[in-house]
Amino acid sequence: MAEIKEKICDYLFNVSDSSALNLAKNIGLTKARDINAVLIDMERQGDVYRQGTTPPIWHLTDK
């Protein structure tokens, strides 16, 4: 899980924002549900936040 978090942070640092599906595909996974639990956990920790569009767009925080 730590490896996936690191990949998410690296990708969002370079791209600035992404949907869960696009993010999953760009870090080597196939479906948004493969990454949603990790994104929600990271959101609780304050590492990422989502804009409430459908589907949500994920961003890194300034943390």
Rank of each mutant, 00 (worst) to 15 (best):
M1N: 03
A2V: 09
A2D: 15
A2Q: 13
A2Y: 08
E3K: 10
E3S: 10
I4M: 09
K5T: 03
K5H: 02
E6L: 03
E6Y: 01
E6Q: 12
E6T: 07
E6A: 11
K7V: 02
K7T: 00
K7W: 05
I8C: 00
I8M: 06
I8H: 01
I8N: 04
C9L: 14
C9S: 12
C9A: 11
C9W: 12
C9K: 15
C9G: 06
C9D: 02
C9I: 15
D10Y: 05
D10K: 13
D10V: 01
Y11G: 06
Y11H: 12
Y11T: 07
L12I: 02
L12P: 09
L12K: 00
F13W: 12
F13K: 15
N14K: 15
N14L: 11
N14F: 06
V15H: 15
V15S: 11
V15Q: 08
V15A: 11
V15D: 05
S16A: 12
S16Q: 11
S16H: 11
S16R: 14
D17G: 15
S18D: 05
S18R: 02
S18G: 05
S18T: 06
S18K: 03
S19P: 10
S19Y: 04
A20C: 04
A20I: 02
A20D: 02
A20N: 05
L21A: 15
N22P: 09
N22A: 08
N22Q: 14
L23S: 06
L23Q: 00
L23G: 06
L23Y: 02
L23V: 08
L23R: 03
A24Y: 06
A24W: 02
A24V: 03
K25A: 10
K25Y: 03
K25P: 00
N26M: 07
N26S: 11
I27S: 05
I27Q: 04
I27Y: 00
I27T: 06
G28C: 06
G28I: 00
L29P: 07
L29V: 11
L29F: 11
L29S: 10
L29N: 13
T30N: 14
T30Y: 14
T30C: 13
T30K: 11
T30V: 10
K31Y: 14
K31F: 02
K31T: 13
A32S: 11
A32D: 12
A32L: 15
A32R: 05
A32T: 12
R33E: 15
D34E: 14
D34V: 05
I35L: 08
I35H: 03
I35M: 04
I35W: 00
N36V: 06
A37I: 02
A37H: 13
A37E: 12
A37N: 09
V38Q: 08
V38H: 08
V38M: 04
V38S: 08
L39Y: 02
L39F: 01
L39R: 07
L39M: 08
I40F: 10
I40S: 14
I40C: 10
D41P: 06
D41N: 04
D41F: 00
D41S: 04
M42L: 07
M42C: 01
M42Q: 07
E43Y: 02
E43D: 02
E43H: 01
R44L: 07
R44K: 13
R44D: 10
Q45H: 12
Q45Y: 02
Q45D: 14
Q45F: 02
G46T: 01
G46C: 00
D47E: 15
V48T: 03
V48N: 08
V48E: 09
V48P: 04
V48H: 03
Y49E: 15
R50G: 05
Q51M: 11
Q51T: 15
Q51F: 02
G52I: 01
G52A: 07
G52E: 11
T54Y: 06
T54V: 10
T54I: 06
P55Y: 04
P55A: 09
P55L: 03
P55E: 12
P56C: 04
P56T: 12
P56R: 02
I57T: 12
I57C: 03
W58S: 09
W58A: 06
W58D: 05
H59S: 15
H59R: 15
H59V: 08
L60Y: 03
L60F: 03
T61N: 11
T61R: 08
T61H: 07
D62S: 12
D62K: 13
D62M: 06
D62P: 07
K63Y: 02
